[in-house]
Design a protein around this nucleic acid. Sequence first.
DNA 1: GTGGTCTAGACCACG
DNA 2: GTGGTCTAGACCACG
Lengths: 119, 119, 119, 119
Amino acid sequence: MIIRIDEYSDVPIYMQIRNQIVMGISSGELKPGEQLPTVRALALEIGINTMTVSKTYQLLKQEGYIMTDRKNGARVRDNIAKSGVLSEENRTELRRIVSEARLAGISKEELKKLIDELY
Amino acid sequence: MIIRIDEYSDVPIYMQIRNQIVMGISSGELKPGEQLPTVRALALEIGINTMTVSKTYQLLKQEGYIMTDRKNGARVRDNIAKSGVLSEENRTELRRIVSEARLAGISKEELKKLIDELY
Amino acid sequence: MIIRIDEYSDVPIYMQIRNQIVMGISSGELKPGEQLPTVRALALEIGINTMTVSKTYQLLKQEGYIMTDRKNGARVRDNIAKSGVLSEENRTELRRIVSEARLAGISKEELKKLIDELY
Amino acid sequence: MIIRIDEYSDVPIYMQIRNQIVMGISSGELKPGEQLPTVRALALEIGINTMTVSKTYQLLKQEGYIMTDRKNGARVRDNIAKSGVLSEENRTELRRIVSEARLAGISKEELKKLIDELY
DNA sequence: GTGGTCTAGACCACG
DNA sequence: GTGGTCTAGACCACG
């Protein structure tokens, strides 16, 4: 899986990596139990500091998406908890996006079609 | 229109205000041409620095949501440009949210229902 | 409030600080709403790196014990969520401690007396 | 006695095994003088490195919980020293747990009831 | 002035 | 070899 950093983005690097890994897991590009690159390998590949990647892995671990052990490095968890509900933050974000979409003249149907494509 | 600041949020205050005003315009609570409170009045009401509100208004103006003039203060634009497409950032955000929703066990239908509610 | 670091402890520095602040809040030495020292001030006082203190504050924030804002620095939250139950980790730890206490010849009553003193 | 490793835990494997053996001795599941599985057998059973089990046994021996000899392997000591007091580390840990319990809204009585259950 | 992020480099426990 | 921790130093957005 290829991780791309947008250095001009306001989103911190560790968060960009986090987001792309989460999307990779969701899309199936990263399979349950699959090995992630080591902290050092990913840092080298992206051209950033190991601490930054380490921060990403700790976040993903805390969120329950991956697990780390000292022997094997990081792996995608094969039993990611399904809360069944959207987090409060994501709900707020979604509300904001829907509002902006409306003002941009995007219809409800177009938004739903977008959901279809992205899901 | 009442603006609420979540002091625990990581979203900067100026951005929280901006988001709520945009949502207010989108929902119709703020009508096209409607007068916004002055920077000073809004800052006083929320209990924050005038600089922060000023930053919000500048952002909203630059985004084309409001217009300002020295005489009348800030007003909602009555001809907000309808690009017809979702901004690149919002599209990326939506993709992230959809990914996380999927992993949380939320079905496509539930997401669409959420869109229905929020739109 | 005075923070003491045991440099020979296996407990990471950021966790030692975290634990002492939590105990300070619990004991009332740190009051709800009370200002914590700035990251820089605390780092200087203890003689450690700012990053380490920053890590502590981020952890405490995420756990809901404190809040940070860029203007005022960090403050003890005045509405710390009361889950009403012991975390799984603490329960496991308590079980381990009770087991070791039994083997050390400490009676159930002595343990309860200890709880009385510490609470 | 069945040893269970929580691969998601931050507690090192050798320490998880150690804790479970100590709890087994305390509960009486492991009797004084009882033979423990060989390093090799336990490692095989759990599916981990023999070095890890070996580390556990060395720690337990050093703590005075078990004794080893080349002929008979490891056995639970039948005269475990009863210091009569809680170790400094355990006392500190207990203080931390009590503090967190208080902040979580757990009463002194509930904690004591928990001690009753666990003892 | 404040916390948040990031780097370059190092050492450590675990396995 | 792996992730986890820490330092010294820097820059940035927010307010």
